[in-house]
Design a binder for these strands. Structure first.
Lengths: 219, 219
DNA sequence: ATGAGGTGTATGGTCTGACCATACCCTGAT
DNA sequence: ATCAGGGTATGGTCAGACCATACACCTCAT
């Protein structure tokens, strides 16, 4: 049997999807939901807390005799996917994850090249990867490099988004390292990116990022 | 007194920030946290549920005598920011939100132009804005347009990210409508974007998106 | 001394039942 | 017709309990 918390989440998602709930509509109250799903109110509350953390619903005390949490976001595939992503359940294909990464890193490369920032952190990450004792350390260095690149763009929000993708990216990154026996190609890509940023060569940086990700994650 | 749930969240964030916790380190157990913060275990669990929803920590049953949730994400500004964004507490500047939007929508415009997709949805949103009775409907149409643009890129993940930014974007969008007495400029921008996508003109689409957002959110 | 295997124990996950302050609804008095 | 006030269901919080699990430790045979 699946965990109670996940049951509740799935049922609420399903209800939103199938019952055509619109933004502003109300879900049943916590006690009512608990009874319908045969779980405790505590589990319902945890599920609602997760959804409210994702900005899907929002609750208010009082509200009199009428019901519970309000839908604050549009239902649909994107919503369900976002929930799954954040829960690590993963509804996105590798293609989508890599696509989003490509978008963020190409953009960041342009910003970083203009600002000529973050080069020290990137260099440090490359060094760490050279000195890495095992695959774990190597992957950690890789993550540090790409995080440094995006952070160099100076927008904490996009950095946070990449950070949020960490779990998925990490898994794929490990797969890549395992697949490629030789890691020198990855490091070469990193060095090309770093050099383009140092030179302030935005076009070159985009090209380098694109090539690097294509190399690491071939179609 | 602040709500118990928020207290716990703040204290955990603070602990991560000030105690130099690293990825893989463990937080105290739920019962211990509850006692330290003088709240019930249920409140602690809700806070941890929120953090785990954001991918900040992860829990496992068992774990023997040693402690609780594991840090699964890098601490620091980006982390705290992500938490605040998702909780609607807002740690990002308007500049950062708009910057992220620009990144996503420029990228989406290129993809959409190549695929020549999503034009029907965008056209529908433009019509809805023309027929809008009040500011609320107008803003709803605006959101629908930009969501359609990003969805046209065919990557549910990036769509989900824009969806996640909805709350912040929405607020700024309202501000923009209020500021601009005349909304024809916004609609004109939408039409330019739509036309470029229909023509498969990637460069023109990027230019149109950039101009439109610069118009809606002047520096 | 060393390894395998069993046991103890604290953990996260869940449930029950209770209390509080709040916000809505409805009634009744004006 | 309007307004004041109580009734009531709500979300937020708490206390205490039980379960299955996974680690740490101890025992015992080798």
């Amino acid at each position: 049997m699946a965990k109670a918390f996940e049951q509740v989440l799935a049922r609420i998602e399903e209800a939103i999807a199938t019952e055509g709930l619109k933004v502003g509509d109300r879900l049943p109250g916590e006690r009512q939901l608990a009874e319908q799903l045969s779980v405790s109110r505590a589990s319902v509350r945890e599920a609602l807390r997760a959804l409210s953390t994702l900005g899907v619903v929002s609750s208010q005390v009082g509200r009199g005799p009428d019901a519970g949490a309000v839908l604050t976001s549009r239902p649909g595939a994107a919503l369900a996917g976002l929930v799954r992503l954040n829960l690590g359940l993963d509804a996105f294909s590798m293609r989508e994850v890599i696509g989003a990464r490509l978008m963020i890193e190409q953009w960041a490369a342009v910003q970083a090249a203009h600002l000529k920032s973050g080069t020290a952190e990137m260099a440090r990450a490359i060094d760490a990867m050279d000195r890495a004792a095992g695959p774990e350390e190597f992957v950690a260095g890789d993550i540090a490099f790409h995080l440094a690149l995006v952070a160099a763009a100076g927008n904490r929000l996009t950095t946070a988004v990449l950070e949020a993708l960490r779990a998925s990216v990490h898994r794929y990154a490990i797969a890549a390292v395992v697949r490629l026996g030789d890691t020198s190609g990855l490091q070469e890509g990193h060095r090309l990116i770093l050099r383009a940023v140092e030179d302030g060569d935005a076009g070159g940086a985009v090209t380098a990022v694109t090539a690097h990700l294509a190399y690491a994650y071939p179609e």
